[in-house]
Write a protein that binds this DNA or RNA. Sequence first.
DNA 1: AGTATTAATGACTAAAATTCATAACCTAGG
DNA 2: CCTAGGTTATGAATTTTAGTCATTAATACT
Lengths: 293, 293
Amino acid sequence: MELIHFRILLALKQRGTLNAASESLHVTQSALSHQMKNLEQRLGIILWRKQGRTLVLTQAGKYLSDVAESVIATVNSAEQHLNLLAAGKTGKLTIGIDCHACYEWFRTILQPYLQAWPDLAIEVTSRYRFNSFEAIQQYKLDAVLTSDPVFNGVLHYQPLFDFELVLIVAKEHRLAGFKVIEPAELQQETILTYPVERERLDMFRKVLQPAGIEPLAHITVEETDIMLLLVASQRGVCLLPEWLLADKIKNPDVISLRFKDLPLTKTMYLATRHEDVQLEYIQWLIEHAQSRV
Amino acid sequence: MELIHFRILLALKQRGTLNAASESLHVTQSALSHQMKNLEQRLGIILWRKQGRTLVLTQAGKYLSDVAESVIATVNSAEQHLNLLAAGKTGKLTIGIDCHACYEWFRTILQPYLQAWPDLAIEVTSRYRFNSFEAIQQYKLDAVLTSDPVFNGVLHYQPLFDFELVLIVAKEHRLAGFKVIEPAELQQETILTYPVERERLDMFRKVLQPAGIEPLAHITVEETDIMLLLVASQRGVCLLPEWLLADKIKNPDVISLRFKDLPLTKTMYLATRHEDVQLEYIQWLIEHAQSRV
DNA sequence: AGTATTAATGACTAAAATTCATAACCTAGG
DNA sequence: CCTAGGTTATGAATTTTAGTCATTAATACT
């Protein structure tokens, strides 16, 4: 059984005669007759009978017509959907979030994004955090928000915006008065970070380790809100993007500091497959990310 | 888009590699590759990508695979159903009832019939009562219970059983004592019949009109139970199959009479298309009808 | 009765799918 | 590091399939 048979049965149902059906399908009536005859022989069952000069569907024919209607509808809708996919009008965007801070930023843009692309199925996941590179190639992810790019040509990294990492301390903290500080000051501090290996934490990678400093203690915290709360109550200090603090004005009990001669400037990237860069809903993300910060 | 593409995507999903899929489909791997390439070009969208030595479905490919799964499942189940239909193991039997009495008889056999053929969709209708002949030819009906056959070779008429029409009167009726009666006696009676034209009523066609008699009154009644009730309370007399009375022993207040020299013997037929006579569920009906009466 | 319309059929042709042979590439294992 | 074995892609040749054309047969309609 092939789609052509379903198409014929459907056209016959809609148009009444095989002649009319052949017109719909842009072939001769003869072709339809041959095709169905062939199917009947293979199935060993009669689908219609010539009654006078019109066709009457048998029970089996009626049944198959009904199946045809649903199958062809499914196929047509799939074809339509593929056209939209090809045109980038719709799709599914599974976006991976590589770091906690990225997630914080993405939250600020998610609402307008959902509104702008009502037909786009958006899925956000941190599942592939440490192998998002492979996940994109295997189409398990479509995009990744990251500030630690791996430029090797396999993926497209689109810079979204630059930001600075700042040290967050409580207002009453002993360092709060300083304009700039030295990494060495952190030796007596408890460091708060997200629960990630040290090699992936800028606090260790770029601040403490280069200065050869081991802090007093290292405590991991899942949630940014809680981290800020702990900082405010003098339980430790942490390194966060400055814009994150701007958003969290509900926390007036902390301030930010910069390190002397240590520019902690990073760039947020959106990583995608090269083929997807031009998709409209990817471009939207890029443009709005750039204009927003 | 054709079923072959769905079949390929499904086989690929199930077997993992195109080589394995080609084995499932009993063609070469080359054929699958060509087919899908062709589809991709026509759709203008890529469905998979070669990653290392294995294939990775793109978003569109994943989507189409899912569609494939459901479409192929539908088609397979349709094919299976058609096989059962061809073998007469299942089907839909729309049975037309030509006369009220036929309906009464059919009710007695319906219950065991439903039990014997749990997968057969049985529909009973009186919609085509006066053109069941055409309805069968147009596959709107599959069988008709009738005691007024039209033997012209177009339909197959299977005799089920013979029965006699008897006059039903109240026990206290003035005719109740008679062994046999003359049609002329009915001149003073009210005649009860189903609401059908006189030409189709045996009471008029075979009893009254041949004797040239017009009864006192003619009242039509829809329901057999009510008709018997009216007879019992002396509101009239009626002509019914004798077996119908046997079933209605709840009505002990009526008795049956026969006409002198007027054998009102009829035969109940099951009319079908010639091609359907051998269907198992039709044969069941025939056999059980014959053994039952 | 004659004409127009319907579907079926058989021979022929055009188109499409499949195979074969091979290239290009990748992975795993000595 | 290179080879053996496995993957998909590709181009040309071949086979298969589908479609057309011309015609028949049956049947409505006028």
